[in-house]
Computed example of a mutant assay.
Amino acid sequence: MIAEDSVLLRVGLIKVLESVGYEIPAAVGDAESLLAAVEEHKPDIAIIDVRMPPDFADEGVKAALLIRRQWPDVAVLLLSQYVEERYAADLLSANTSGVGYLLKQRVANVDDFLEALQRVADGGTALDPEVVAQLLVRKDRDPLRKLTPRERDVLALMAEGRSNAGIAAILVVSDSAVAKHINAILMKLDLPQTDADHRRVLAVLRFLEVG
């Protein structure tokens, strides 16, 4: 499902997604229509513009948060024209699975966009690298200061939603090296001994300062 007030982008998204096999039960231009469509169709994932009519403020974010509360099985991917970290933080603080936040410019790189979309649809996360980069710049307080530069690189890629294998490919290191870095990150952030997936989420939330 798509909620985007720009007709050109909405049509473009429909064409791209349908070309790779996605079914689009509804494509709307405002938050009110989005909520009605989600209630009717219960889609697997909703792609939502951050700013929509009538005020072009944060209607999309509010709708996404409402969707996550009322229909938690519906994944949401927010699209924004600009980096606005608090929207990513708001979304992740509400639910840490099946959420994403990307800049609209990422749609132009179709393969990367589709990979992020599928990751979110499968219950993972996808944060725009620009959001992560800005967060890294302002993270100068403990406990993140304990991390080495390489560990910060790994944590940033975790925040983007990358798997161990994905991180290893980007950093050109072995899977075992990534696993060691992640273990070190979890220890330095003093995260509780729980299942691995939950600890990864906690690490990302610590990074975003929403947990």
Rank of each mutant, 00 (worst) to 15 (best):
V120T: 04
E40I: 05
R199S: 07
V210P: 01
G124E: 07
L144Y: 10
E23T: 14
L92R: 14
V20L: 08
R68K: 15
A27R: 08
V11T: 13
I14W: 00
A63H: 03
S163D: 10
S176K: 15
E40A: 15
H181M: 11
A159F: 08
S93T: 05
S80K: 07
A37E: 09
A169H: 12
E130L: 14
A26L: 01
A57C: 09
G123S: 08
I47V: 14
R200P: 00
A165Y: 11
S6Y: 05
A159W: 08
V16N: 05
G98W: 10
F56M: 15
D142T: 11
G98H: 06
N183R: 15
I2V: 11
P25H: 10
V172F: 13
K62E: 15
L205D: 06
L91T: 07
R119C: 04
A27M: 08
R51E: 15
R86L: 12
R150L: 12
L136G: 13
R150N: 12
A27I: 04
K146D: 10
L144F: 12
Q134S: 11
M52Y: 08
S174H: 13
L135F: 14
A75I: 02
V61A: 11
D73Y: 07
A121V: 02
D49Q: 04
D44K: 12
L155T: 03
Y101A: 09
K104P: 04
Q81K: 14
D197P: 01
I167W: 09
P192H: 00
D44Y: 02
L136M: 13
L13N: 04
D153E: 15
L147P: 01
I47W: 00
R206L: 02
R51I: 01
L136E: 15
R206V: 06
D112W: 03
V76F: 03
P143E: 09
Y101S: 05
L78C: 05
R141D: 11
D112F: 09
H181R: 10
K146C: 02
P53R: 12
R150S: 11
I67H: 03
L8D: 12
N95P: 01
D122W: 04
L117H: 06
V172C: 12
D112I: 02
D153H: 10
G12N: 12
A184L: 12
L17K: 10
F113T: 04
D175N: 14
A88C: 14
V110L: 08
A26Y: 09
Y82A: 11
L78I: 14
